[in-house]
């Protein structure tokens, strides 16, 4: 269960330059739900994702995930929370271009010091699940956009997180690849993962497996 209570997020570059990204936003997302955050660029969708991922802290208000006040965590504990609970899929994939597919996917396991056998088992599982096993040794920069997105989602899932956050995941994909990505999300939903997607891609708004669509406009939930 994810709860955002009276969240305000202000980006303050200096006293004159102040952007209110979220204004008293309250939102509740139940476990296993797929929620789409809909809104134009700059509406505050990504800010909500980064707050849920504990990548940033609110200016005021509270973010609670499974009863834990994650907006109150110090950086060290926020990292552990993220590692154990969150899989993040970014618009630009955020992969390391000169590493192979397998090395990119394995990255989140590095801090866990798993033994090689366990790591390989997890790797094989996600590569199979997201249909990227045949490219295991390919260098990421040589892959197509769709393939890179599959690598990104495999990396996001290698720790088997409960929550998947996707920030404009289809912005760089054509319609065919976007539909294939949506199929992957459907598969993740069947595994009872909580999925929050920030997007303005109309493809997401009428999907049968999406539980709710929340519209954000200028930092306010409608």
């Amino acid at each position: 269960m994810i709860e955002l209570k009276h969240i305000t997020k202000i980006y303050e570059l200096n006293r004159a330059d102040r952007v209110v990204a979220l204004n008293d936003v309250s939102l509740s997302i139940k476990e296993g739900v797929v929620l789409v955050l809909k809104g134009a660029s700059g509406s505050g969708k990504s800010s909500i994702l980064s707050l849920i991922a504990a990548l940033s802290k609110p200016t005021s208000g509270e973010v609670i995930v499974d009863g834990k006040k994650i907006s109150k965590l110090s950086d060290n504990f926020a990292s552990v929370y993220r590692r154990d609970n969150i899989g993040f899929v970014f618009q630009k994939y955020n992969l390391i271009p000169n590493l192979s597919v397998r090395d990119n996917i394995l990255l989140p396991l590095v801090p866990l010091n798993l033994d090689a056998k366990d790591a390989e088992e997890k790797l094989a599982l996600v590569m199979e699940m997201f249909h990227i096993a045949h490219k295991a040794n390919a260098i990421v920069k040589n892959l197509s956009g769709g393939e890179q997105q599959r690598v990104a989602i495999a990396r996001a899932n290698i720790n088997n997180p409960k929550i998947i956050l996707a920030d404009e995941p289809t912005a760089n994909l054509d319609e065919k690849l976007s539909l294939s990505f949506i199929e992957i999300l459907k598969e993740l939903k069947s595994l009872n993962k909580t999925i929050v997607i920030a997007t303005h891609d109309p493809l997401f708004f009428n999907l049968d497996f999406v539980d709710s669509v929340v519209e954000i406009h200028n930092g306010i939930v409608r």
């Binding site: 209570k5 609110p58 208000g61 509270e62 907006s71 109150k72 950086d75």
Partner: peptide, 17 residues
Amino acid sequence: DLNSTSQAQYKLEKQSF
């Protein structure tokens, strides 16, 4: 006051670090 979710407290948390 760690229980507070006010702007002032979040600022203090950053400053405390």
